[in-house]
Structure formats: structure tokens, C-alpha cells
Design a binder for these strands. Structure first.
Lengths: 351, 351
DNA sequence: AAAGTCACTGTAAGCGCTTACATTAATAAT
DNA sequence: ATTATTAATGTAAGCGCTTACAGTGACTTT
């Protein structure tokens, strides 16, 4: 077998081309190739052409890990959301990604299934992979993981909630105030027998704040906040339906069921249908988030509109700012307004 | 200023601890530390304890890029889905992630917004980041990118479709046959005036196959397949509603509107409500995917049930197998069955 | 007691890049 | 023509790991 052929085959069988290969083919140094890629105007026109040709010819792609090791930058942002199963975080995340893309960053997403330990694991994974910054949902997590992030010097921005007292900067809205506003409107319509279906409130400040918001409204109307015992179930249509059916089986049936989010509310709506109950004549239901879903079901859901896209865009801007200007993040409190639709009715007769 | 203090401050201000730091503190070589992490039983009990203590004390996390460079493995899988905005891919992806996690892999997700060029960019990003394998949706993409993947020796598995003739192995279902089965049932119920709302069919084999499926059914019932001109709109509730309203404004109103997926169908349902049309008495509507959504709307959607979780689990198993056994992937054709619900009615009078 | 085993541990060579610094060539200034 | 200045390129030192290979003792084995 001729040597030429053998050599060719070897080449063919080997690993992807490296900077060295490109340099050799283009007859320049590796530094020049690197400059062609990262800062083309540092290089003369003819050499750049030679290098580009070599890159094309070899089908070269820079090795990311090597790049990261040498330069300590990845232009990657990590986001960890509690779930991808429903659309709660999708629209905001989409806007976030667009904002990052405009600024030259790539977004990598993981979902933690609402589990704190999974989230920690994923934070570490993303950081170890060189994420230049992280977007997390809500403030509830261990001190240890915040310490870790500090030590690794990875900027973190929290979204979907706003809390100026928290350790990390946040871009979001006041879950408690928003839910309170919704609840006050509903209570003003005469509702007194109040129930609530919530997601698990442990490790989830959004859920807790929304519960607190309902209680605030109750207190403001002279009702006993402690009398509200939310049913906690995983966020899901099925779960919401089951919880609703349970609730309506109680001795004293509620006239209003506040739901921690639209998904639970849609479940409640379905539960009502199963029981042959009419919404809002027999019972009222509210959601939170104003997902597309809220206007698809009938009756359409009274809910709280969350500024998903705005939040995502602002988060992208702020997080990139934190990274590039090496500064602390600035928290932002966005508006989340009540949207009244058909799922809540006025209580006519009783109290 | 005493030297001690200064030194401490320096240490405090520096970058995250490295293997070297751990080795120094534990008074062993870097090799031993590495072994403690990657293959603990190679190391003696007492030394391991010392090393573990040092790791804890320093809060050490291995640098992923360095690891990747040295070992060429990342235990990371990348997935690129067309959208996260709705739940179409969520359930399957969740199952995929669980399957990977069980096998010691991490999933990183990107979304391409149904754009081929974005997808290519993300494929390159994920590969450069050392993804050990990739999960992609559908077969439609450029030859160039498949060549690139070959050259980089990154195993690829395609999901959400099945096509044994395609270049990449796929785990999914036969979109064309499934849609045909649905359409045949519907046509057998007397429907003759047929319309369809589809997502963009360019660069989307699933969309094309579903259209072809409807045409197959038409041909089988003696109708002219060419007479079906699908309206193509982006996948979205709003878009589906608008398309539906358009369709019903035509001279010859359809009695059945096939939709490319459940999201479009839900949109169509909403369009019908806007027009004051009753489904299925005035017009029938079908979806595809059997999302949770399909049972939430009323009337509940007649659709095709896609085995999301099964597909995700099998994909995880197969892709990890391809990676670890360095073998070609084996395609699997799963069942996708028609689910008859209330959104399709029998045509009584006309033809 | 000398040689052979074996179980740990250490040494050091990369992995593919970026970049500070050195070198060279070309142009401008004297 | 000679030197200073500048622009383009090259040289080589890491970045933080893994791992082949080379010790180093403590035991066996004969």
C-alpha cells in the first residue's frame, strides 16, 4: 500500500481539525489564526484570506473547552427553570434568549422539576461549564449555593419575583401585592367562603407570597387570614382538578377558589365541569400568570397578567450588564395587573 | 502590614480553587486528587479522607473545560427543539432528561424557533461545547450540517418522526400514517368539504407528512388530493384562530378543518367561538399531539395521541447506547393512535 | 535473603486554545 | 542612508485537568 494513501487515511480517521492544522495549511502561526477568528482587523487582508480558506477547507470549528480555558469567557448564560412541562416560563425565557442573542450570548436551559437539590446540581453543572452568568427563578435556595456562586464569581439574576431585601438582584414583580390586588377585587364582589389551591410553598417564594397576598386581602376585609388553609398540590391540570373536587366535597363549599397559577385554575375549571358545576354561577375560580391558556378555556380566566416578555428582555439586558461591567445587579419591580374575565362572578344572595 | 494577612487576602481574592490547591492542602499529588474524584477505589482510605476534607474545605469544583480537554468526554447531551413556547416537546423532553439523568448524563436544551439557520448555529454551539450526543427533531436539515456532525463524530438521534430511509436514526412515529388514519375516520363520517391549517411545511417534515396523510385519506376515498390547499401559519393559538376565521369566510365553507397540531386546533376552536359557530355541529376540528390542552378545551379535541414519554425514554436509552457502544443508532417506529373526542361530528345532510 | 508481586502514589506530558512579549518588515523621520 | 516608529506576525507560556508510565514500599515467594 503506497505511503501516500496510508497517510491520507490516517488523516481521515483522526479527530477534528485543530488550530494547528489550520495554521499549518495556511502557513501562518497559530496566533495569527486565533486573531483571524477573534479580531480579524488585526490581520492583513491576504493572510486572512489564506486562513479563512484553510478553515473552510478543513471544516474547522474552534474547540470550546480550549477556548474557555485560555480565555475564561464562554458567552454562555445558563437558566434553570422549575419546569418546561407547561408554558409558565416559556414566553419569558424566549424573550430572554432573544435579548441574549442580540448581545452575542447563547442561552442554555435546564429544568429542575421544582426540586431544590436538582437545581443545585444544575447550578454547579452550568457553572462548571463556564456559564458567564445565571438566571434563576425565585430567591429560595440554600445559603451554601449562594456562597458557592460568590466564590466562583458567577453573576446571578433572579426573575419571576421581586424582593429588594434578598441577597441576589431580581427582576420581576411583587407576587404578594399582585395576588392581594386580585383577591381584594374578588372579595369586594361579595365572596366570603374562600379556598385556595397552591403549588408546594416550600422552596417556592412565589407560591408563599401568593398565599400571603390572599391572606392580606382577607385581613383588609375583616376576615381571618388564618382561616385560609391552602391545598398544596404539584402544578398540573390533573392535580388542580383533583384538588378542586376535594374542596367542593367539604361541608362548607367555597364560593371562590383562588389558584396559585393558571394551570391549576384550568384544572379547577375541569374539576368543576366534572362535578357539573357552572363557573362562575356556582363557584368562581381565579388563576395567575395570564398564559395563553387563560383565554382558551371557557369561561376565560380572571387572573394576574405577568409581563413575561418585558421581564425576559430586561433580565437579559441586566445580566449582560452585570457580566460586562462587572457590577452588582439592580433589581426592578415590574407591574403585574389583574385581568378580569368571566371566571369570577358577583355573589348575590348569601354572605 | 504583616505578611500573613496579606497572603490571606491574596488567596481570598483569587480565582476558584484548582486541583493543585487541593493537592497542596491534602499533601498529595494532583493525580491522586483526580483519582479520588474519578475512581475512588484506586485510592487508600486515609488519603481519600484527607483529599475529601481538602475538597470540602476549599469548596472545590472541578473545572469542566479542563476536564473535557483532558478526557474528551462531557456526559452532556444536547437537544434542540423548535420551540419552548408551547408544550409540544415538553413532555417528551422531560422523559428524555429523566432517562439521561438515570444514566449519568446531563441535558442541555436550546430552541431554534423553527429556524433552520438558528438550529445550525445551535448544533455547532452544542458540539463545540463537547456534547457527547445530540437529539434533534425531524430530519429536515442541510447536508452540510450532517457532514459536519459526521466529521466531529457526534452521534445524532432524531425524534418526533420515524423514517428509516433518512440518514440519521430516528425514534418516533409515522406522522403521515397517523394523520391518514385520523383523516380516514373523519372522512368516513361523511365529511367532504375539507380544509387544513398547517404549520410551515418548509424545513419541517412532520408538517409535510401530516398534510400528505390527509391527502392519502382523500385519495383513498375518491377525493382529489390536489384540491386540498393547506393554509400555512406559524404554530400558535392566535394564528390558528385567524386562519380558521379566514377559512370560514370562503365561498365554500369546509365541514372539517384538520389542524397540523393541537395548538392550531385550539386556535381554530377559539376562532369558531368568535364567529359564533358551534363545534362540532357547524364545523368539525381536529388536532395532533394530544397535549393536555386537548382535554382542557371544550369541546375536547379529536386528535392523534403521540407517545411523548415513551419516545423520550427510548431516545435516551438509544442515544446513550450509541455513545457508549460507539455504534449506529437503531430506528424505532412507535404507535400514534387516533383519539376520538367531541370536536368531530357526523355529517348528516349534505355531501 | 534476594527477587518478584502488588497496591499505591507521584511525575509529567499533553489536550487546543489565547495572549503577553519578542521579532521582523515596512514606513516615516532625521 | 540611518534610526525611530509602527504594523503584522511569530514564539511560547500557560489555562486545569487526565492518564500513561515510573517510582516506592510492603509483602510474598523461593
Amino acid at each position: 500500500m503506497p505511503r501516500e494513501t496510508w497517510k491520507l487515511e490516517m488523516t481521515d480517521t483522526q479527530s477534528p481539525p485543530t488550530l494547528d492544522d489550520v495554521a499549518r495549511v495556511a502557513r501562518v502561526s497559530t496566533a495569527t489564526v486565533s486573531r483571524c477568528i477573534n479580531d480579524p482587523q488585526m490581520v492583513t487582508e491576504p493572510t486572512r484570506e489564506r486562513v479563512d480558506a484553510a478553515i473552510k477547507a478543513l471544516g474547522y470549528t474552534p474547540n470550546f473547552a480550549a477556548r474557555f480555558m485560555a480565555a475564561k469567557r464562554t458567552f454562555t448564560i445558563g437558566a434553570i427553570i422549575p419546569t418546561m412541562e407547561n408554558a409558565i416560563f416559556a414566553r419569558g425565557l424566549q424573550a430572554f434568549q432573544e435579548g441574549l442573542h442580540d448581545r452575542g450570548y447563547t442561552l442554555l436551559v435546564s429544568s429542575s422539576a421544582y426540586k431544590a437539590e436538582t437545581e443545585e446540581e444544575q447550578i454547579r453543572t452550568l457553572v462548571a461549564r463556564g456559564a458567564d452568568g445565571l438566571l434563576l427563578i425565585g430567591h429560595d435556595r440554600s445559603q451554601a449555593i449562594y456562597d458557592y456562586l460568590d466564590r466562583q464569581r458567577v453573576p446571578v439574576l433572579v426573575a419571576w419575583t421581586y424582593d429588594e431585601t434578598a441577597r441576589a438582584p431580581s427582576i420581576g414583580f411583587d407576587n404578594r401585592a399582585a395576588m392581594r390586588a386580585l383577591a381584594e377585587k374578588v372579595i369586594a364582589m361579595g365572596h366570603r367562603r374562600i379556598a385556595m389551591i397552591s403549588g408546594a410553598s416550600r422552596q417556592n417564594d412565589r407560591a408563599r407570597m401568593r398565599i400571603a397576598g390572599v391572606r392580606d386581602a382577607m385581613a383588609a376585609h375583616g376576615l381571618d387570614p388564618a382561616s385560609l388553609i391552602p391545598v398544596e398540590v404539584p402544578y398540573g391540570v390533573k392535580e388542580g382538578a383533583a384538588a378542586f373536587v376535594d374542596l367542593m366535597g367539604a361541608a362548607e363549599k367555597p364560593s371562590i377558589v383562588f389558584c396559585g397559577n393558571d394551570v391549576l385554575a384550568v384544572g379547577a375549571l375541569r374539576g368543576a365541569r366534572q362535578l357539573g358545576l357552572h363557573v362562575p354561577d356556582d363557584v368562581s375560580i381565579t388563576g395567575f400568570d395570564d398564559l395563553e391558556l387563560a383565554q382558551v378555556v371557557s369561561p376565560e380566566l380572571t387572573t394576574v397578567h405577568v409581563p413575561h416578555r418585558k421581564m425576559g428582555m430586561m433580565a437579559a439586558e441586566e445580566l449582560v450588564g452585570m457580566i460586562e461591567e462587572k457590577r452588582q445587579g439592580v433589581s426592578q419591580n415590574l407591574d403585574a395587573n389583574v385581568v378580569q374575565r368571566a371566571s369570577v362572578g358577583v355573589v348575590s344572595s348569601d354572605g
